[in-house]
C-alpha cells in the first residue's frame, strides 16, 4: 500500500505499465529530467531511460502523430500534454488518424495510444490553462475519453487506458491532483473502462458528474443527506463511450437527475446524458433533468474563475428545485 495523491497515482500507474510491458513508452514536453510540469513522470526517466521517457520538441501536433506511427508499429505510447489548452493542434491527429486507423485499414493497423492532459479550472492558472473541453473529444468516433476523479480511479483507469487496444484521451482533473490521498495497492489491477462508478447510493435523486466536480457534488450530497434527501452520486468516468445504462438505471429508481460539469453548458456531455434520459428514461422522470455547468463564456481569468465554476451552492440550489418539482 502506498498513500498517493491523484497525480502520484498517475505516476504509479505509468511506472507499473512500463514495468509490465516494454512496448509502453512516454512522450511529451519536459517529462524527462524535469518529470513533467505537474511531476506526474517524476523519476521515470531514471528508471526506464531516455528511450522510453522521451522529451519531445515543442510540437504539439507532432507528438500525437508520432504516437500514431509508434502505435501502428506495435508500441503503446503515452503522450503527455502539459495542459489541455495546448492539445488542440493534436485534434487533427486524433480525429483524422488515431480514431480511424483501425477502421480504415479493417484492423490491419491500430493505435493503442493514450493522450494525457490535465484540464479544468480552479488553480488560478494563467490564460489557456483552465478550460474543460472534454466534449470536443467525446464527439470523436473510434476513441475513448476517460476522466478519473480520485487517486485510486486514476491508477486503475490509466492502467486500463494503456492496456486498451484503442486510442484513449485521458483527462486529469488538475484541481484535485493533490487534494486528497488514498491508499493505492499498486497491484497492477486496472479499473473497468466504459463504466460509471456509483460513489454514493441514494434513493431520492441522481447527481451525475465527473472529474474535479465530484468533490462539490459529493459535498452537496452530504448536505442534502442532513436534510433527509438521499442523493445517488455517479462518476461517469468514461465519457466516450457513455455508460448510459447505469445512469438510466439510477434515475429509474430516483426519478430525478441533476448533471454537474465544469465545461460550458451548450453541447457539453451533460446534454448527451439529458438526451439519453429524455429518450429512454422519460417515463421514470418526476422532474425535468437539470444541468449545473460552466457558462457559455470564455473561461475567465483567475479573478472571476470561481464565479464561472459550478459550486456546491449552485448544485444545492438546482437540486432543491428539482426536488421541489411536483
Amino acid at each position: 500500500m502506498t498513500e498517493a495523491t491523484l497525480v502520484e497515482a498517475v505516476g504509479l500507474a505509468l511506472a507499473c505499465a512500463m514495468e509490465d510491458d516494454e512496448t509502453v513508452l512516454l512522450l511529451g514536453e519536459d517529462i524527462g529530467v524535469d518529470g513533467g510540469v505537474f511531476r506526474a513522470t517524476a523519476d521515470l526517466i531514471a528508471r526506464f531511460g531516455a528511450g522510453r521517457v522521451m522529451d519531445t520538441p515543442l510540437s504539439e501536433s507532432l507528438f500525437a502523430g508520432l504516437a500514431v506511427g509508434l502505435g501502428a508499429q506495435g508500441f503503446r505510447p503515452v503522450v503527455e500534454y502539459q495542459f489541455m489548452g495546448f492539445i488542440y493542434p493534436a485534434i487533427d491527429q486524433i480525429l483524422n488518424h488515431a480514431g480511424r486507423l483501425r477502421n480504415r485499414t479493417r484492423g490491419r493497423l491500430t493505435c493503442p495510444l493514450v493522450i494525457r492532459a490535465p484540464f479544468g479550472g480552479g488553480i488560478h492558472a494563467p490564460e489557456h490553462h483552465s478550460e474543460s473541453m472534454e466534449a470536443l473529444f467525446a464527439h470523436i468516433p473510434g476513441i475513448r475519453v476517460v476522466i478519473p476523479s480520485s487517486p485510486a480511479r486514476a491508477y486503475g483507469l490509466l492502467l486500463a487506458a494503456i492496456r486498451d487496444p484503442d486510442p484513449v484521451v485521458f483527462l486529469e482533473p488538475k484541481r484535485i491532483y493533490r487534494a486528497l490521498k488514498e491508499d493505492i495497492a499498486d497491484d497492477g489491477i486496472a479499473a473497468p473502462l466504459d463504466q460509471c462508478f456509483t460513489l454514493r447510493a441514494g434513493r431520492d435523486m441522481t447527481l451525475v458528474t465527473w472529474g474535479a466536480m465530484v468533490v462539490e457534488t459529493l459535498a452537496a450530497a452530504e448536505i442534502l443527506a442532513a436534510e433527509g434527501v438521499e442523493a445517488e452520486v455517479i462518476d461517469v468516468a468514461t465519457l466516450k463511450p457513455l455508460d448510459m445504462a447505469a445512469i438510466l438505471s439510477s434515475v429509474e429508481r430516483t426519478g430525478r437527475c441533476v448533471i454537474v460539469h465544469e465545461a460550458p453548458l451548450s453541447g457539453g456531455v451533460g446534454a448527451e446524458i439529458a438526451a439519453g434520459l429524455a429518450n429512454r428514461g422519460l417515463v421514470n422522470l418526476l422532474a425535468p433533468v437539470q444541468r449545473v455547468a460552466g457558462y457559455d463564456t470564455v473561461m475567465p481569468l483567475p479573478r472571476l474563475e470561481t464565479d464561472y465554476m459550478p459550486t456546491e451552492e449552485r448544485i444545492l440550489r438546482t437540486a432543491r428545485r428539482v426536488l421541489a418539482y411536483a
Binding site: 502523430g65 500514431v68 483524422n96 488518424h97
Partner: peptide, 8 residues
C-alpha cells in the same frame, strides 16, 4: 499530416 507518422 502523415509526416509525423513517418517519424513515429
Amino acid at each position: 499530416t502523415h509526416a509525423p507518422h513517418a517519424a513515429g
